[in-house]
Design a protein around this nucleic acid. Sequence first.
DNA 1: CCAGACGTTGTT
DNA 2: GTCTGG
DNA 3: CCAGACGTTGTT
DNA 4: GTCTGG
Length: 254
Amino acid sequence: MCGRFTLIRLSDFTNLFPWILPPDQPAQPRYNIAPTQAVAAAPNKTQPKIEYFHFGLIPSWAKDAAIGTRMINARAESLSEKPAFRTALRRRRCLIPADGFYEWRKKTDGTKTPMYIRLKRDRPMAFAGLWDEWQAPDGSVIPSCTIITTQPNELLRPIHNRMPVLLREDHYHQWIEPDEVDPEDLLELLTPYPANQMVAIPVSNVVNSAKHESPDCIKPAKDELPGEPRLSSAKGRRGKASAMDQSMLFPSDP
DNA sequence: CCAGACGTTGTT
DNA sequence: GTCTGG
DNA sequence: CCAGACGTTGTT
DNA sequence: GTCTGG
């Protein structure tokens, strides 16, 4: 699942992919984008451009905008079967740029630790998204979006049973192609991103509240394990962790 | 034909 | 809007 | 996603 | 427990 993420440097994204125009107004760094808030995304229009969408898809037929709070994600495996998402997959896709995302890892005692997940390379990512437009009772049109999820890769599996679909950079263009595309071809793009190109970092629970919006949200926290001494020397259970860290530091790029 | 649903997650 | 169920 | 609220009637 | 709000 993916219900929180960051977008700290949108300009990095639009500089890397200049065929996507930047937004009308310069974007402020975001460290804790939550459902119902504004999400920057590039929809499949002739000239892709960053626009803002309510996080949580509100289908055009919805009677109430509140349905959006439960439509923040769409399962890739069932996209083409679900009436609410089927048409959007064919006609209303978007790229959702991000610097990283959060997942809450459940510990054995039931408490949760927020983890921040980002690419090892200093580079933005983009989620596969769908969008729609809903007309409010007052006549105003509310654009909204949802993030497609898939099975977790090896990095995410110990953390959560779902993860957002991160598109490959060489698939960005195809995903927001404005003309009709065979949905089968699109579904092939929705696979788990390679784990060896990502890192997961425990962070403090500052991020838990959607009201908190600061760099503290991504500040690394000590990963407290049950029984672990507070001030540990370089003793014990180091080997495995550092072996993991090594593999994370030197990814094999495509 | 009309009526009614249309979603995900996680937990049980 | 579009699909399923009756 | 997590945090936080969760209700009606009737009387003043 | 379940729903709404951010």
